[in-house]
Design a binder for these strands. Structure first.
Length: 935
DNA sequence: ACTTGGACTTAGGACGATAAGA
DNA sequence: TCTTATCGTCCTAAGTCCAAGT
């Protein structure tokens, strides 16, 4: 205990499982690596405190906590990171000769104890990290730093007690606002809690009642009408059912204004019914019979999702169309004939020849393995003489013929006349029409993904071990249909059967099947604009808003538990801190056959680097293998805890939170608020942040300006949630172009000034500042080049015009103009050339417009300045946003009522912030929030 | 307790449509 | 008017979380 080696007790306590079986991999076999002791000895904390104090000398830690100094994952690096990613644990095995823990202990201790002032823990690769950090961030870096300074200066004590984190730059103002809110929140807390519990108690109960009284869940799952495999069997009332349905429903769906639009009959009857039955709000016109569920919040328990459901099933992809005989895979240079099944698979790959997948070794290996198997199963390849050809090596396969064919086809399709295209589209639309909508509780609702996913090659993201495998064609026999009782079942394709037909109204899906790659279940569900989805979206945001009432208590609790003696509690508290401040995802465990990505609970040793005195550097791949990179100062206790959680014998590959998983975490959260889980924090913090950001926007300026400010707020949220996108391939060239364009404008401005000088040369001295060279283009060579370019451009213009005129002439049967005419015209450019020459010599430009005055020119310059500024800010925004995806947070995390509030309050048209589908999706928000609405 | 299954939300990229610009 | 950049939608993979099964 008294040992100065603070990791000794830990190492002893958890023992690196000395028992034989797994000595070689002892640290890793249980998937979590070493488990830390269940209690944290006082000595450990003491040591941690001491170390920390030593490090933190005259360093004001704590008050800057939660605001990342560096975030943004840099894409190029990300790509490297992906490629380099180590497997779960390989590093250990290679570097540390397994079971003797001396080397481990030693290694750790050195970095740990010795250079406390710089790097506390360094995994073997802290250098790359540091470098990366330095290299990658430029602008954000400095911006955030500035913000941090401000925040530090403010010395705001409560930084960690109530700010819901933030990646935002202006931490200071933010805290002020939040403090106020927190105070109020505290007062209200007790009462709110009571109310909440009460409400939820009722909810709960009713849920239970429901399920108890009804059939037990399991029975419900596969209830009533089993069998059916096929067409109608029990719906004798084939004809009228929709209408009937609509009636019956509108009764049941207490709040529903029954509507049926699917066919005329239904409409008529349904309408009549609706008018009679739901009088309260039923006073709407027949046409826009919309179901405004948000207007009467009938409390539903949520287990039953519908009463009646009618739909037309799913749309299967078209059958495979064989390639023309002359388009073949070549093997070792020889064209081979493939059985249809194999040809189709080869074609999948042929389609992707110019994507990055085609060069991904995992992808090609997986593809080839499946291809070989399918080829074998289907009879094998043959050459043109009918002789069998064994396809053994991927490298000898040549898909270029296929690829060329596909490209040509696509091209041909593109070149169809617009009439033909229209016809094709019309046909497609017609085929899809009946799948577009369903009838849910008598209302017409949009179906989302009614198309069965076509076969192809699985495009797993990141380093997915199964990427490239063949995703098989889904047969009707695999598809289960879920539909209301007693309505016609959509017929399976001729000669086929459904896997099953069920009538489960506790789920929202219309059809389901299992996909062959990962065994995942796929569903056909309603569209995001449907009432069903809308209601749950609404509930999601209401839940997040409810968290407001509990957040203070939750933060206080985990703040306390950060010092808990119980390891499990302390880990949980620390994880909650991260989830709350950094908006990390929960981080469920993943299998070996998935990409190695993590979230909070699944963070491993190598994902976190600690830097004294309070900096935690996160670097890991999150959902979709998107890199999460942040250097965040944390409050001292969190820093100390992370050190403890990383202590020996833990090493690369070991879990940081070895005594925590998502289900424990969520179970704990339930105690605070029913339905509270880790993801609610993301919603809460995103919406909260958005609200704070919007509140800072001055209500002035143009719509364009206000919209830009909105987007900035949106961006803050996107950064918080780490929503990224890859920079488009053309980004770089686009930026260069933009830069050139701006310089061109600057040159135009220069010429305006030179016109002034032409008029009044004496001004050059009198207004020296005004006429001093624009540093951006103060480069003779560039100007010369640019002038050349302008001349070329002018010539090109003339030529083009000339050609066009000739073409037209030819069309009209007139004779073309002579080349001499072109030459004549080109002479005009000579004038420009001369102009430039004179300009370069005298530094002045003769105004072309008559009556040019200094005043007029000055006005033009001013306009030019505006133009330049506009272009520059545009370019800057584009550059700044190149890796940030705004859409995800707008669609999933930011309470749409905030946007509605903003638009109403700031007089920004809603169309600006919500495109059509979003307006539909968020209709409930558009109609329920006003300019005072608060999250 | 732990694992698996199931249902639903969240996610980035592909791709087609549309608007803006040469 | 054609091309090109941007926008909006579609697609489906990849998460979360709860509950049932062992």
């Amino acid at each position: 205990m008294s040992s100065s080696e603070d990791d000794v007790p830990l190492a002893m306590l958890n023992g690196r499982r000395t028992n034989g079986t797994s000595s070689a991999t002892s640290a890793s076999t249980n998937g979590k690596g070493p488990i830390l002791p269940d209690r944290i000895p006082k000595s450990v904390d003491k040591k941690a405190d001491k170390d920390f104090d030593a490090m933190a000398v005259d360093y004001p830690t704590g008050d800057r906590a939660g605001v990342p100094i560096v975030n943004i994952a840099v894409r190029e690096e990300l790509d490297n990171g992906r490629a380099k990613r180590k497997g779960r644990k390989p590093a250990i095995k290679e570097e540390s000769s397994d079971d003797s823990d001396t080397p481990l202990t030693k290694r750790r201790r050195t970095s740990n104890g010795v250079k406390a002032s710089t790097i506390v823990e360094s995994s073997d690769d802290d250098v790359p990290l540091a470098k990366r950090a330095a290299a990658s961030k430029t602008r954000t870096n400095s911006a955030s730093k500035a913000a941090n300074k401000k925040a530090a200066a403010a010395k705001d004590e409560s930084s960690d007690s109530d700010t819901p984190l933030a990646t935002m730059k202006l931490a200071k103002e933010k805290r002020k606002i939040e403090n106020k809110a927190a105070a109020t929140a505290k007062e209200l807390r007790a009462e709110d809690k009571k109310a909440a519990i009460k409400a939820n108690g009722i909810k709960r109960k009713s849920v239970k009642d429901e399920s108890d009284s009804d059939v037990p869940l399991k029975a419900k799952r596969k209830p009533v009408v089993k069998k059916t495999n096929g067409v109608k069997q029990e719906s004798s009332d084939d004809d009228v059912p929709l209408a009937k349905k609509a009636k019956a429903i509108s009764k049941n769906a207490a709040t529903a204004k029954g509507k049926a639009v699917d066919n005329k009959k239904a409409v008529v009857k349904g309408k009549a019914k609706a008018a009679k039955e739901d009088t309260p709000a039923g006073a709407e016109t027949a046409e826009d019979e919309e179901y405004k569920w948000w207007e009467n919040q009938a409390e539903t328990d949520g287990t039953q999702k519908w009463t009646t459901l009618e739909h037309n099933g799913v749309l299967f992809p078209p059958a495979y169309e064989p390639l023309p005989k002359n388009v073949k895979l070549k093997y070792d240079g020889v064209p081979v004939t493939l059985p249809l099944a194999a040809e189709e698979v080869a074609g999948f790959f042929g389609h992707m020849l110019n994507s990055t997948h085609a060069t991904n070794p995992t992808f090609t290996a997986n593809f080839f393995k499946d291809f070989q198997r399918i080829l074998k199963e289907s009879g094998g390849a043959k050459d043109t003489t009918g002789k069998k050809v064994l396809i053994k090596e991927f490298a000898k396969c040549d898909f270029t013929d296929m690829n060329n064919y596909f490209v040509a086809e696509a091209e041909a399709k593109k070149n169809l006349s617009s009439a033909e295209k229209k016809a094709i589209k019309a046909e497609k639309d017609k085929a899809e029409e009946k799948y577009l909508h369903c009838l849910l509780d008598g209302r017409k609702e949009k179906v989302g993904n009614f198309r069965i996913e076509p076969p192809g090659l699985f495009r797993g993201r990141g380093e997915h071990p199964k990427t490239g495998m063949v995703k098989q064609r889904v047969q009707p026999e695999q598809v289960t249909i879920n539909i209301g009782n007693g309505v016609p079942v959509p017929p399976p394709p001729p000669g086929h059967k459904w896997a099953d037909v069920i009538h489960d109204n506790t789920v929202t899906w219309l059809a389901t099947w299992k996909e062959n790659i990962n065994g995942n279940i796929k569903y056909v569900m309603l569209a995001a604009t449907s009432s069903l989805k809308g209601m749950s979206d609404f509930k999601k945001f209401e839940k997040a808003r409810e968290l407001k009432k509990h957040i203070d208590r939750i933060r206080a609790d985990y703040g306390r538990d950060l010092k808990s003696e119980l390891m499990a509690d302390r880990q949980r508290a620390t994880a909650m801190y991260l989830i709350d401040r950094l908006a990390l995802r929960a981080g469920n465990e993943k299998g070996e056959d998935e990409a190695d990505t993590v979230g909070c609970c699944s963070l491993r040793f190598e994902h976190v680097t600690l830097k004294a005195p309070d900096l935690v550097i996160f670097d890991f791949l999150g959902k979709d293998s998107i890199r999460f990179y942040q250097e965040v100062p944390v409050i001292p206790q969190v820093f100390k805890n992370m050190r403890i959680f990383k202590k020996a014998p833990k090493t690369t590959g070991d879990m940081i939170f070895d005594r925590l998983d998502t289900s424990q975490l969520n179970k704990h959260l339930q105690n605070y608020m029913p339905g509270l889980s880790a993801k609610v924090f993301r919603t809460y913090n995103a919406s909260w942040t958005m609200q704070q950001q919007l509140a800072k926007i001055p209500n002035e300026g143009s719509i364009h300006d206000k919209y830009a400010a909105y987007n900035e707020a949106n961006k803050a949220v996107a950064i918080l949630c780490n929503h990224q996108r890859t920079v488009s391939a053309s980004h770089e060239t686009m930026m260069l172009k933009a830069e050139e364009k701006i310089k061109a404008l600057r040159y135009q401005k220069l010429r305006l000034k030179r016109q002034i000088l032409f008029l009044k040369p004496e001004l050059k001295k009198k207004r020296a500042a005004f006429f001093k060279p624009d540093p951006e283009i103060d480069d003779k060579n560039w100007i010369l080049e640019h002038q050349k370019f302008l001349i070329e451009q002018e010539k090109e213009k003339i030529r083009k015009k000339f050609e066009k005129e000739n073409e037209k002439a030819a069309e009209n049967g007139e004779k073309e103009q002579k080349p001499s005419e072109l030459k004549e015209r080109l002479k005009a450019v000579g004038e420009l050339e001369a102009e430039f020459k004179a300009e370069n010599k005298t530094g002045a430009v003769e105004p072309k417009t008559k009556g040019a005055t200094v005043e007029k020119l000055e006005a033009q310059i001013e306009k030019m300045d505006e133009k330049i500024l506009k272009q520059e800010t545009e370019a800057k925004v584009r550059e700044d946003n190149k890796t940030v995806a705004l859409g995800t947070s707008k669609i999933n995390y930011i309470d749409p009522r905030l946007s509605v509030m903003f638009c109403k309050k700031y007089d920004v048209p809603i169309e600006k912030v919500f495109a059509k589908t979003l307006r539909e999706k968020f209709k409930w928000a558009l109609e329920s929030a006003d300019e005072d609405w608060e999250f």
